[in-house]
Design a protein around this nucleic acid. Structure first.
Lengths: 362, 362
DNA sequence: AAAGGTAATTAAATCGTTTTAAACAGCAAA
DNA sequence: TTTGCTGTTTAAAACGATTTAATTACCTTT
């Protein structure tokens, strides 16, 4: 027998005041600032009663009247991809601190799915959106921006649109990771990337190229462009490169790296003996064996934190200025070489969370 | 300049009917069944107008009045863990088909966080919950069950509570994976597990033990219990076992396996030359090298599908029977041995999604 | 005593739906 | 002509909060 939900009216009656007063007190409690003037004692009495009855304001009613839902939508490529899942987790945690709830959606890099998700989320009344735009999503993003719905782009940017965004300095990252390979003595370095018009990918390639040029290695510059739905063709790329005497591979994404390394392994070559490998983001896999892989470490936590903070700012300042902020995060170059030390690193991913990182029982 | 949202009233006026009629038509369209009798022509006219004005019912209002939000809450250990992320993704996709939206939350195996999330979600008005219960969550789960809130437990069960649940046949899985090792000729097989009262873990151990007994290997039965916040101690377990001449390790979870394999690697041993390894769920890492690892493959997609379908059923039948269903999924034993074939497997995880699996650009 | 001011409180409108009960029109049966 | 029925349609009451404008009570000041 389910107990009827206690409403603001119950609290008002119990405390012997009007519902308006209860509303004032409750929202003041949340906001913190004393906007309404309520007698200290009365306020306390109301709080006590609310507490005793375990009163929880009905959020549908609150949303309906106030037009705010304290819910945001986060749309990314695929929540089951480690990189995005980690970001999602950071956003979730941080949103919770601000008492916001998060809706997640995955686009699979499909602009139609993206549009659909945006519609559904706006429909659900989200106060704002954090979006990882995919190729071909420019028009959709533009539409959202025009509707003045608070929006923050993540990981990638869309040209000619005034929006806030949080991205890595991908060009710098590309240059630095290439430099790391050069400094290790390699010159025949080739990049494996996607044939896609995504800002982050394009920038990474640009960085690679500029670094190679800076070291006078122009003749070795070569970028392989795979179609993302033809990922298995990576084996050909690897074999071909091997025949040309390539020394090192720079993979544009972690997924490419994993698949590339599988191809290398299947071809009978070894890392790092036969090829050096560099890529973006680390991976558990690199730590299992004595695999020296140079990685660009993206500050995952800051991605989440900055994006969320920016979005909240936009939501709260909605009526006033439509100013846009662009946050560019700095990459860090790391070499994963597990067997080097006798001590195990902390259990979880290197992008450790705010608190202690603890294993979950999968 | 944001266009004012079009309401049911606008549609009614435009179509020259009452708002009630519009409401009838709109909800009929969704439900499919003709519950209300509305003149065919009138209905069509209303639909046309609604379409022309691009009318979207306000979900807060709808929720407030009807008490249903078409939103469900999914609470798992950690959305950034591959296993749970994959399940989350399946649930998301399937929920979308039923026009439900999903709220996700992570407990980090902390019962207090779990309770908190449940409160927040119920507060947000979810129609039901899918929960991966953690240790010490029995009381909280019981509370939810008593409140008659539609609930489905996932991956693990809680004793003495009448709830629907979807779990793997962990005992059978434990036995079969052990058998796979035995059949490969190993007898000195030890299990590495957690010191936790979680049904899935306990069952896996039970399976291991029963299989060892069945093959008359009682004398070698040994299960190591790690505290989950002391995961680094796994190195000692491995070293100790090595000295005793252990031939194979059975890790109770994927995370344990990854950490265990790192420890093995750091100790200077090789897999499978020095130790055979078996565990639950595959991992990209296993495919990069010629690492023969026996895995229990959990039918991730079915976890998601079954749980969601069950929950929806409960939500829709809420008023009637409080019947509970227990879905027990069968495990499958697979050996990942990448170098065996010259062809690359599909890019994504082996638990391929419904549609084609496509890479995302991380 | 009247006027003005401030602090505290409240009545009532509103948000956009769903849902109940009533009303209406048209027609067949009595 | 009245009654009853069927098929359509509608008025109006929720749902549970927020928010505006008004009211009350109690001091000060003139």
């Amino acid at each position: 027998m389910r107990a009827r939900k206690v409403t603001i009216k119950d609290v008002a009656t119990q405390a012997g005041v009007s519902i308006a007063l209860v509303s004032f007190v409750m929202s003041n409690k949340a906001g913190g600032k004393e906007t309404y003037k309520v007698n200290k004692e009365t306020a306390q009495r109301i709080l006590d009663v609310a507490d005793k009855l375990n009163y929880q304001p009905n959020s549908a009613a609150r949303t309906l009247r106030s037009g705010r839902s304290r819910t945001i939508g986060v749309i990314l490529s695929d929540i089951s991809n480690k990189f995005f899942a980690d970001i999602a987790r950071c956003i979730e945690d941080r949103a919770y601190k601000y008492k916001y709830t998060v809706l997640f959606g995955s686009t699979d890099e499909n602009p139609r799915k993206l549009e659909n998700l945006i519609d559904v989320f706006i429909d659900k009344g989200v106060d704002g959106l954090i979006v990882v735009p995919c190729e071909g999503a420019d028009a959709v993003i533009r539409k959202v921006a025009q509707q003045r719905i608070p929006l923050v782009l993540l990981d990638r940017e869309v040209s000619d649109i005034e929006t806030s965004s949080v991205v890595l300095n991908n060009c710098k990252a590309g240059a630095q990771i290439t430099e790391a390979l050069v400094k290790r003595g390699f010159s025949r370095i080739e990049m494996v990337s996607y044939a896609m018009q995504l800002s982050n990918i394009r920038e990474r390639e640009k960085g690679y190229r500029s670094c190679m040029e800076a070291f006078g290695l122009d003749e070795y510059i070569r970028t392989h462009h795979l179609r993302h739905d033809k990922l298995h063709l990576i084996a050909e790329v690897v074999n071909d490169a091997a025949q040309r005497g390539v020394q090192a591979f720079l993979f544009a994404t972690n997924t490419l790296a994993i698949n590339g390394m599988m191809a290398i392994s299947k071809g009978g070559w070894r890392i790092p003996q036969d090829f050096a490998v560099a890529c973006f983001d680390s991976n558990e896999a690199f730590d299992i064996y004595d695999t020296t892989v140079a990685c660009v470490r993206q500050p995952i936590e800051r991605f989440g934190v900055e994006a969320l903070d920016l979005l909240i700012k936009h939501i709260e300042e909605k009526d006033i200025l439509p100013s846009c902020t662009r946050v560019v995060l700095s990459p860090e170059i790391v070499e994963s070489e597990s067997a080097a030390s006798g001590v195990l690193p902390p259990p979880s991913s290197p992008e450790a969370r705010t608190s202690e990182s603890v294993a979950v029982f999968d």
